[in-house]
Structures are given as C-alpha cells and as structure tokens.
C-alpha cells in the first residue's frame, strides 16, 4: 500500500509539474481584464505539487502494512482488464462489432465455460443487436472495419 501511495503521489506531482510548465507559457499573470489563460492551471499545478509532496511524506513515514493488491486479488482483476484492452485494440483494426463478437465469445468460453452453442449465439446476436440499435435506429456511426466495408455498410 505504501509503495503504491508513493508511486501515485509522485506521478501526480509530475503531472502538476507539466501543468505548471504549460501554464507559464500561456501567461500566469492578472491582466487588465482578469486572469490570463494560465492563471488557474498554474495555481492548480502548484497546489497539486504541494499536496502530493505532503502525501509522499506522510506515506514515507508510515510502515508498509498491507500490500496494495494481493496476488489472489490481482488475478481476477487482470482477467477483466487485459481482455478489455484487447477489445479496444481489436476495435481499431476490425471495427467495434467484429471486435465485440470475438471479445464476448472468448470471454464467455474462457471465464464462463458456457457451451459453444450459447457462446456462438451471444457472440453473434449481441453485436448484431448493437449494430441495429446504433447504426440503424439512432444513426450513430461506430468504428467499422474490413467486414463492414466488404458488406457495403
């Protein structure tokens, strides 16, 4: 828990530094008609650095009690996280609907051990339903890939 606290606070401090850097470029003063563009970001950045510095000190003085995440907890978390990341990556290549079909099917089979019939039914019907709701009813275009191009959508 202590290490995670230190890492997070340090990261946020760096972020604060980036904000301050950008704000200085924009002008941090108080012009004739009120504050300039960088005035608020600058104060936010400085406050952020200060607050995180105190958090780092508090955390450093504290003994490392329990771990941020146990191995038993991390397993299931990653089992949700990495397929989700894969879904987004696949969406970029294959479009959302095809990626969603693979993702849903894979997840059902891998985690749920559902029968192939159920897997196929959900993996095909769910993206298809999404397609009709978004592309046809609500006319909201989603990212599409080679399959949709081939089908002339």
């Amino acid at each position: 828990m202590r290490t995670a606290d230190l890492v997070t606070a340090s990261f946020l401090m760096v972020l604060g530094g980036v904000v301050v850097f950008d704000a200085v470029g924009l002008g941090i003063g108080w012009g004739t008609d009120g504050p300039k563009s960088g005035f608020f970001p600058f104060s936010l950045g400085v406050l952020m650095i200060a607050a995180c510095a105190v958090i780092v000190m508090q955390a450093a003085r504290r003994a490392a009690a329990r771990p941020f995440v146990t191995r038993a907890q991390l397993g299931p978390v990653l089992k949700v996280l990495w397929p989700a990341v894969a879904l987004v990556a696949l969406t970029q290549w294959l479009g959302l609907y095809v990626a969603a079909a693979f993702y849903t099917g894979f997840y059902m089979r891998w985690i749920g051990r559902h029968s192939w019939l159920a897997v196929l039914a959900v993996a095909i019907l769910f993206p298809l339903a999404t397609f009709f709701v978004f592309e046809k009813w609500f006319l909201v275009p989603m990212p599409k890939g080679p399959l949709e191009a081939w089908l002339g959508q």
Binding site: A84, T104, Y107, M108, I111, G112, H114, M142
Partner: peptide, 16 residues
C-alpha cells in the same frame, strides 16, 4: 445474467 456474459456486454456498452 451470468458474470461471463454480463461483463463483456457491459464493457462493450461502455466502449460504445
């Protein structure tokens, strides 16, 4: 709905 179906559905809906 079973977890292994609901989770991917929620994630896809969130992405959409």
């Amino acid at each position: 709905i079973p977890f292994a179906i609901l989770t991917p559905v929620i994630v896809v809906v969130c992405a959409v």
